[in-house]
């Protein structure tokens, strides 16, 4: 049975490290894995999506509507944008940070209110947390990605030690401690 994780956010937020970490970990666990990334123009502050799929044998590199077991979102509006991709019983792990898109900056549109509540009202499971504050607490606002991975890790039958080992193997040595702290803050107490 193939499991699907979508990582969504704003270009430049660091979703590639999150998908690298997941891909590395899941391959080590013996799964067939596919990760699909976005490069080029979409990276310039646009909405970006990364697909991570794993199972016995994975064919398609992308995730379609109604297929995602998890949506990991770096930003509230982006979680809402891709909610159709979630399985009705799926879970969203979302950073509650608000990043205004250009139509909001120019005044052509307004940023929607109460997005987390609206998503919860659809009956899907939502873990909403201020990952930016936790990342800053760990030592850098750039560690939002690993805070999110920490929270996601709670829902996997993979030991905390293996997640931490994967972080050590995917992150430059000088940032390992910072990221382990970010992971721990995201995961919370075991």
């Amino acid at each position: 049975m193939t499991k699907n994780i979508m990582i969504v956010g704003v270009g430049g937020q660091g979703s590639l490290l999150a998908s690298k970490l997941l891909g590395h970990l899941l391959l080590t666990e013996g799964y067939d894995v596919k990760v699909s990334e976005v490069h080029g123009m979409s990276q310039r502050g646009g909405s970006v999506v990364t697909y991570v799929r794993f199972g016995d044998k994975v064919y398609s590199p992308i995730i379609d509507k109604g297929e995602a077991d998890f949506i990991v979102s770096f930003e509230k509006l982006e979680a809402a944008r891709y909610i159709e991709f979630l399985k009705p019983e799926g879970r969203i792990v979302v950073n509650t940070q608000q990043i205004d898109p250009m139509p909001v900056i120019t005044g052509a549109a307004s940023y929607p209110e109460d997005l987390v509540e609206k998503m919860k009202a659809l009956g899907v499971q939502v873990d909403a947390m201020d990952c930016l504050s936790l990342a800053n607490e760990a030592g850098s606002g750039k560690a939002v990605n690993i805070v999110l991975m920490g929270r996601l890790s709670k829902y996997f039958d993979i030991s905390r030690e293996k997640w931490e080992q994967a972080i050590r193997e995917c992150v430059p040595a000088k940032f390992v401690e910072l990221n382990l702290k970010a992971f721990s803050l995201g995961r919370g107490d075991d």
Partner: peptide
Amino acid sequence: HVSLDEALPGRPP
């Protein structure tokens, strides 16, 4: 799949 009944602002690059 579920859907939000709300038009969301786009996020172009």
